[in-house]
Simulated scan of single mutants.
Amino acid sequence: MKLGLHLSQLTWPNGPAALGPDLAAVAKAADQAGFEYLSVMDHFFQIERYGPPEHEMLEAYTTLGYLAGHTERIKLLTIVSGVIYRHPGLLAKAVTTLDVLSGGRALLGIGAGWNEEESRGLGFRFPPMKERFEQLEDALRYIRQMWSDGDAPFTGTHVSAERLLNVPQPLQSPHPPILIGGSGEKKTLRFVAQYGDACNVFPGPDLGHKLAVLKQHCEDVGRNYDDITKTVPLWLDIGENGEKTAELLDRLGELSAQGIQATMGWVPGVPSLELLEKFATDVIPAAAKL
């Protein structure tokens, strides 16, 4: 079991003026601790789970580029980019740039998008669900083509392009892994099987059923189910002094037994570097044995 540190809450004690150095310190500590992934949200307003909309929120790809410059090995991604926020050509170029400048450490995290409040607040068009999923499939096809050899035109349901030129290409071959977020059985998990390299599904009581649905979709499209990395979001809470470490490891063991290979989670108490040091000694080595 691999762990990812998800930076979902940036209302930190030292305030916005210190976010740069504080983020750099947290990223370096996570890198050195052995976290496999470092992720940020792709939102413009804070979401209810972590605080009111007025709390701090940074633009995702600017932040990931900054974090790339302060880390050496950890993989970088959003969980996840709403497809409605960026034209797929811009999104492909952003992740390509991140991959090249980080030395091949980028992933594309993408989903259909859901936050109508922030879209309407900032004036982004928020299409009906059917159209958002059509846009998601367009983007997945478009980006995979842009990350392949050649520069042929593209025609989708909602976007067309005359020349998908992308120079330089990403460093990772055949392309940066594509993680698709969401648990929808008819579309999202089918898209994972057809276009994705990883999924991020909610670890609820129906997790086993969701994975079985994904496996069936893989069989339907001739995809090897084992080629897809299965991840879940999870609060990585070990308590202020590590008193909940055993409880977290038990939960990670349960998820591993169901086939989950990585958890992407907020660590309550970050930006405390001492907490991340406890993960380095007490959690990550034990999780790696699961």
Results as ranks from 00 to 15, higher is better:
Leu3Ile: 14
His6Cys: 10
Leu7Ser: 09
Asn14Lys: 15
Gly15Ile: 07
Pro16Glu: 07
Pro16Trp: 02
Ala18Lys: 11
Pro21Asn: 05
Ala29Gln: 12
Gln32Met: 10
Glu36Met: 03
Ser39Gly: 12
Val40Ile: 13
Val40Cys: 08
His43Cys: 06
Ile47Phe: 11
Glu48Met: 09
His55Arg: 07
Gly65His: 07
Tyr66Val: 08
Ala68Lys: 10
His70Thr: 05
Val80Tyr: 02
Ser81Met: 05
Ser81Ile: 06
Ile84Leu: 13
Ile84Thr: 15
Tyr85Cys: 06
Tyr85Ala: 04
Arg86Gly: 06
His87Tyr: 14
Gly89Thr: 11
Leu90Thr: 15
Leu91Cys: 09
Gly103Ser: 12
Ala112Arg: 06
Gly113Asn: 11
Glu117Asn: 10
Ser119Asn: 14
Leu122Ile: 09
Phe124Gly: 11
Phe124Val: 13
Phe126His: 12
Pro127Phe: 07
Leu140Pro: 01
Tyr142Arg: 02
Ile143Val: 12
Arg144Ser: 10
Gln145Pro: 00
Asp151Thr: 15
Pro153Lys: 03
Thr157Leu: 13
Ser160Tyr: 00
Arg163Gln: 11
Pro168Tyr: 11
Gln169Trp: 09
Pro170Val: 08
Gln172Trp: 02
Pro176Ala: 01
Pro177Thr: 07
Ile178Leu: 08
Gly181Pro: 09
Gly181Thr: 09
Gly182Ile: 11
Ser183Ile: 09
Thr188Gln: 04
Leu189Cys: 07
Leu189Tyr: 03
Gly196Asn: 08
Asp197Pro: 04
Val201Ser: 04
Pro203Thr: 13
His209Lys: 14
Lys210Cys: 08
Lys210Arg: 14
Lys210His: 12
Leu211Arg: 01
Val213Met: 01
Leu214Arg: 04
His217Pro: 03
Cys218Ser: 06
Glu219Asp: 15
Asp220Val: 05
Gly222Tyr: 02
Arg223Leu: 04
Arg223Thr: 04
Asp227Ser: 14
Asp227Tyr: 03
Thr231Phe: 10
Trp235Gln: 14
Leu236Gly: 00
Asp237Trp: 04
Ile238Cys: 02
Lys244Gly: 07
Thr245Ala: 08
Leu249Thr: 08
Asp250Glu: 15
Arg251Ser: 04
Gln258Thr: 07
Ala262Ser: 14
Leu276Thr: 01
Phe279Cys: 01
Ala280Lys: 13
Thr281Cys: 01
Val283Lys: 00
Ile284Ser: 01
Ala288Val: 05
Leu290His: 01
